[in-house]
Design a protein around this nucleic acid. Sequence first.
DNA 1: ACCTGAACACCGTTCAAGT
DNA 2: ACCTGAACACCGTTCAAGT
Lengths: 204, 204
Amino acid sequence: MTEPPRRRLRADARRNRDRLLAEADAVFRQEGTDAPLDSVARRAGVAIGTLYGHFPNRRALVGSLLRERNQALFQHGQELLTSSPPAQALIRWVYAVVEHAAAYQGLAAVLADGLGDQESELHASCVRMTDISDQLIANARAVGALRRDVTGADIFALMNAAAWTREHLPLEQADRLVALTMDGMLTRAPNRNTTTKQDRSQNS
Amino acid sequence: MTEPPRRRLRADARRNRDRLLAEADAVFRQEGTDAPLDSVARRAGVAIGTLYGHFPNRRALVGSLLRERNQALFQHGQELLTSSPPAQALIRWVYAVVEHAAAYQGLAAVLADGLGDQESELHASCVRMTDISDQLIANARAVGALRRDVTGADIFALMNAAAWTREHLPLEQADRLVALTMDGMLTRAPNRNTTTKQDRSQNS
DNA sequence: ACCTGAACACCGTTCAAGT
DNA sequence: ACCTGAACACCGTTCAAGT
């Protein structure tokens, strides 16, 4: 729940670790989470063995990279819980996570896999995302803004599916998927919630 | 549009080609489209060079593998165009394609990438899928069963996103994504269209 | 006309040897 | 305590040599 028991590192080791993370972020942004770790090490100015010394595998590296970012995301989610009208809060949360999960190509897959995999360094984060979704859902349902049996797991699936869509289809397509789906989930209720452009061509 | 100009092959070459396709199908089903081609060749009883002789790259192999299957799918789509009430036809079409695109792990990505990539062996098929979706959409809209500005591209995105979801999240999650999204897209119109279980807990 | 398989390139991961 | 980089394994792809 709290910070991992980060043991003290020798000064040079910490410096290497930090540079590895910085370069990994840069490389993953450009080439996705499957980029050669070799090039990460080279850019960080260390041997490949050093990278493995700090991070036992690629997932651990991605996990460390996301830890801070995740904290910020969760805090944002918590704030939305009270700061915005329930329906809008849920919508904003979904877009925020999609944005987050689209940081690197391949990240959506890592996250999706992480929910069911206890071993994953991102497991806890995925559970947390689902939890926050559940709370936002409960709020929205409480004011009658959300219809049907939508669950946190559904929202988690949608967020990852949309992030994946960003990697493979034209830019707006992912947003349209989210907009259409959310719009179907939300009832046009007391509080207005416009996911898409203003188009109210509806009948009955 | 019609059969590719398949040149006559020497008997042994044709036999090899067929076995390669059969084994590729088996291997891809088990290990996904990223499975070692080496093992495909070995199982087919030929050298790796023979595989590359028949299929210049992995995409070509996947493409050939899907050509027949795609024909069947398109025909099904065409039939739905006239055989079922528009809303139901669209729903069935989406589930059929999701099923199709989930045949191998990684296939959804190949398909999604194929829509925008002229070079892809699956490009034409992806365009076709979008076209059929467009026609089904037009029908549904014509009877007032479909709301908003849903496009064939939206349906294509949803289908692939759902197929991808199957690869990474618990089984029903993909179906739930489709059900929730489609249910939001479809209006409760003259002709009944129940995507999910019967739950009409609604207000207004 | 087609097949073979050695050869090369590339990358993940380990570990003995260094400092 | 940490780093180095050679070494090994694995896989995609090519191509000279065979039939």
